[in-house]
Simulated scan of single mutants.
Amino acid sequence: MRLTILLLCLLAFAFRDDKPAYRFYTPGLKATSYAKLLRQATEADVVLFGELHNNPICHWLEFQLAKDLQSAKKGNLVLGAEMFETDNQLALSDYVQGKTTSKELATQARLWPNFDTDYKPITDFAREQHIPFVATNIPRRYARLVSRQGLSALDTVSADAKRQIAPLPISVDLTLPGYKAMMEMMGGTDSKAGTSPHGAQPDMTANFARAQAVKDATMAYFILQNLKPGQTLLHFNGDYHSKNFDGIVWYLRQQQPALKILTLSSVELADIEKPGTDNRNLADFVLAIPADMTKTY
């Protein structure tokens, strides 16, 4: 009898009743809930959802949060996304306002390859609910220009182009943790050789980080340009752009220190019940997802 009970206990431990697709944690890695996320998001001015671009749980939760915030805010919701560049704002607005079809949007805007599966449901929801949707990201050709030639290259673009970017000059602090980590990931620099261990020139490494910074600065600028008192702007961006309260958050704070900002950082873990210490303080809410979760691409 005792052996039977022991076996049943072992089976119960080995085969859990549920296989949760995600867990939420506080910055200190205490378990928390979606309900608390929604409550705090409703009170925030800006919510930065740091996603993993190919993760279906991220995209599903983004959609759920958009729907629940729309209900909670009673129309005082604005959406924004890294996935739309500022020079595509007219095409995005025309679609959300019902002036064009999805086929026309696909020809008029530079949509990400995973738009149909991952972002179209939210865009269609904005269209159905008449929710403003802001294209916040710098046009990629100008970010590419910075990565090749540095920040001064932006001084050479047209006046029309400059209206699609955060106001110049854009201040970039390469000592911020996110940019510093990016440069280290690319190999850092060898002061004696003048190159990184992987062969990249120091200026190239720094310029790549500067290109990321101008994206962050531009997203922050257009978030603020489209935010009115009493509204919540829910913004979708790659996790890198807002984790560790860095990136977009830093630029928002430079302009409006008192802004109520809520951040969410997504991580994939072997065991979502056991987040490691390296997941501490990534964001106001840490979204843990099983590492073997299927991918959208």
Rank of each mutant, 00 (worst) to 15 (best):
K228Q: 15
L262T: 13
T277N: 14
K180P: 05
A291P: 07
E82M: 06
Q255T: 14
L61V: 10
L234K: 02
A288K: 00
L227T: 03
S33K: 13
G187E: 07
N226G: 13
M182G: 03
S171C: 06
A91E: 02
D94H: 08
D17W: 15
I170T: 12
L262Q: 11
D155P: 09
S266H: 06
I165A: 07
T263F: 08
E62G: 02
E268R: 08
R141Y: 06
N281F: 14
R16N: 14
M83P: 08
F125E: 00
D190L: 12
A159Q: 14
T296G: 11
T277S: 15
T107V: 11
A283R: 01
A109P: 14
E85K: 08
E128D: 12
T100G: 07
S102C: 02
H235A: 01
F222H: 09
G230K: 10
A211P: 12
R141I: 13
N137D: 15
L38V: 14
Q164C: 07
T294N: 09
D203E: 14
A106I: 06
L11N: 03
Q40D: 15
G50A: 03
I261K: 04
A91W: 12
R280S: 05
V267L: 04
G199M: 03
R110N: 12
A220Y: 07
T32Q: 10
E268V: 04
Q149F: 05
Q64I: 08
R144L: 07
L264D: 00
Y297N: 12
F49Q: 00
F15P: 02
G98T: 10
Q254C: 07
L145E: 06
T100L: 04
E128F: 02
Y119D: 11
L79M: 11
G230Y: 10
P202M: 00
R2K: 14
A211V: 14
R127I: 05
F133S: 01
H59I: 06
K180Q: 15
F13R: 00
T277L: 13
N244P: 06
F236V: 01
L227K: 02
R39K: 12
N207S: 05
L111A: 04
F236D: 01
D124Y: 08
I223P: 04
V146R: 00
E51W: 09
D278Y: 12
P20W: 00
S265G: 02
E184F: 06
T296R: 04
I131F: 07
T294W: 07
L61W: 13
G199Y: 06
E43W: 11
D17T: 15
F24A: 03
L11S: 11
A41V: 06
A161C: 09
T277E: 15
A258N: 15
L262N: 03
T100R: 04
A106M: 08
M204T: 15
D118W: 14
D94A: 01
G178D: 08
Y142N: 04
A291Q: 15
P56M: 02
E104Y: 03
I223D: 04
H59Q: 12
P167M: 03
K192Y: 12
E128N: 07
M1T: 14
K30C: 06
T123Y: 07
W250N: 09
P275S: 02
T101L: 10
L287N: 01
L174E: 09
K274P: 12
M204S: 12
D68T: 05
D246V: 06
A81I: 03
T205M: 10
T86I: 04
